[in-house]
């Protein structure tokens, strides 16, 4: 089991290297950069621009730039001083003149809050719904849930977000976007939490709708599949009550394929979250990358791409580990 995790981690490292290169490549190939827009401003002297170019090493050949950037991310001694180490140095944001990581770190936290809240809510709703739909197959609940699932799955995230914003502004029940209110700092810890939840509600709702639609169908299909298995017949033949057959034997086995989904959830949600973040002004990684692209803030985009990719890979890794943990067939092979 440890070996399994170790192998996975090693693979992850290689993947990270690959994606760092791709991220770098993407921004290198993008025409124009922030300094070009600056150059159009007559108030800024060419000398200043030349100085910035040199400071950021933009005159160097691309492979050198890549290595410098990569080295910055990895733990490295600062200015040859072996007593002072730095890491996660993704460079400086052109537009805000602060280290990229200081932009990315809170953004990452915010996106994670959104994603994790969505995951928790979705699973709590989707699993019971899927189980019930499967157990009462073709019953009214099942038919209704299939119908709702199609609708939930087809609604575009950004459209639903706009729809909810419209309702929010009409009913004044929820804030219209953003993550925290204006007077956040003056609130008590409890107040802060409530304020956060208040702002979290609509974005999570948007993401949950699509997510539940998908998960519930998967759960239902998985359980139906398992209920057809021979060992369920054996369990019944043993004289076990139907309830035990379903909840101890069938559900346990049906949740197995869902566990892998659980890890991949993070990857799916990151994309969905991007749309929601932009429409609802939630300050997460998605919003950051969008603004950085508009402003051609090179290092921010690269860093953001890497960080979001890392999150996805970590999620996948989690899925692999979880699956190995619960399925003895993989564990003891």
């Amino acid at each position: 089991m440890i070996r399994y995790i170790g192998e996975r981690l090693l693979l992850m490292l290689f993947l990270l290297l690959g994606i760092s290169f791709i991220s770098f490549l993407i921004m290198q190939l993008a025409p124009g950069n922030y300094l070009d827009t600056l150059a159009m401003n007559p108030q800024i002297s060419p000398a200043y621009i030349a100085h910035m170019k040199e400071k950021f090493g933009l005159n160097l050949p691309w492979y050198v730039q890549y290595f410098r950037w990569l080295l910055g991310i990895l733990p490295h001694p600062v200015n040859g001083n072996w007593h002072h180490w730095d890491y996660f140095d993704f460079g400086i944001s052109f537009s805000q003149q602060i280290p990229v990581f200081s932009i990315l770190k809170p953004a990452m936290m915010n996106t994670l809050i959104l994603a994790l809240a969505t995951i928790v809510v979705s699973w709590f709703i989707a699993v019971p719904m899927g189980v019930y739909a499967a157990v009462k197959q073709n019953g009214p609940f099942d038919q209704a849930s299939i119908f709702l699932a199609y609708i939930g799955f087809a609604i575009p995230d950004f459209f639903l977000a706009m729809l909810l914003l419209f309702l929010a502004s009409r009913t004044h029940l929820f804030p219209i976007g953003g993550m925290i209110g204006r007077d956040y700092e003056y609130l008590s810890p409890w107040g802060k939490l409530i304020d956060l939840f208040h702002h979290l509600f609509l974005p999570v709702l948007v993401l949950t709708v699509g997510n539940v639609a998908y998960l519930m169908r998967q759960m239902r299909a998985s359980l139906l599949d398992v209920l057809r298995a021979e060992y369920i017949q054996t369990a019944r033949a043993k004289g076990l009550r139907e309830r035990i057959v379903i909840f101890r034997h069938a559900l346990r086995n049906a949740l197995n394929p869902m566990i892998t989904l659980f890890g991949f959830e993070l990857g799916f949600l990151l994309s969905g979250a991007l749309a929601v973040e932009i429409v609802m002004s939630w300050p997460g990684l998605g919003r950051v990358i969008y603004e950085a692209i508009i402003q051609k803030d090179l290092y921010v985009v690269m860093g953001d791409l890497m960080v979001s990719s890392v999150l996805l890979i970590v999620g996948n890794l989690l899925a692999d580990i979880l699956l190995a943990w619960v399925d003895p067939r993989i564990r003891y092979d």
Partner: peptide
């Protein structure tokens, strides 16, 4: 492997990133 690499990026992030490659 290259396919896997591409799949390692969340799709919309990759889309936006690649879009930046296209001139305005």
């Amino acid at each position: 492997r290259s396919g896997e690499m591409l799949l390692m990026f969340p799709s919309l992030y990759l889309l936006l990133g690649l879009r930046a490659l296209i001139p305005e």
